[in-house]
Amino acid sequence: MANHAHESHHEPHVLPLPVYYGVFGALLVLTGLTYAVSFAGLPPSLSFGVAMLVACCKATLVGGVFMHLIWDEKLNIIVLAVSVLAMLLFFSVTMMDELSRGLILPEEGTLYRQHELSTLNEIANPPAAEHGGGHESGKAEHKAVAGAAEGSGSAHAAVAAPAAGSGEGSAAAHAAGSGSGQH
């Protein structure tokens, strides 16, 4: 009977026990490796690369064996692959924007970054004490950015006013310098 062949085709695919213990052992070794590397005093960017590489190896082991993807229907792998690709696209396009802002038109970039950081400061420390500066903002794009960054309309004219003069502004400029310096 056709059904019989169909049923026998779907017997559970059982892996031998040593496969599970082997994968678990490998995961422990890789965890120990990242833990040790974090104490090795490598430069942050290299240490970050090693940590991510090891994490990807661990994820492959868990996904491939524990989640049974290696022996699973291909459709399920495609679902995972599509969402991982979407995630990488999301990361890469956002980081291209993030990391290249200071590179294009350096002067405007600096101003932009100062403004952006002061906006972030505003988010982190809601304006309690100082609302320095007036409503000087001839630059429409600054207002637009402030609106986009915080979502609401008013009260951002003050944020949009370049914070260059104040102490906060110079701290922000410093942070921007170190930020672009790493890359």
Binding site: M95, E98, A175, A176, S178, G179, Q182
Partner: peptide, 13 residues
């Protein structure tokens, strides 16, 4: 994770 990476790029120290 994106939020993590953006803030890390802004404030590495």
């Amino acid at each position: 994770f994106m939020a993590y990476f953006v803030f890390r790029a802004l404030y590495p120290d």
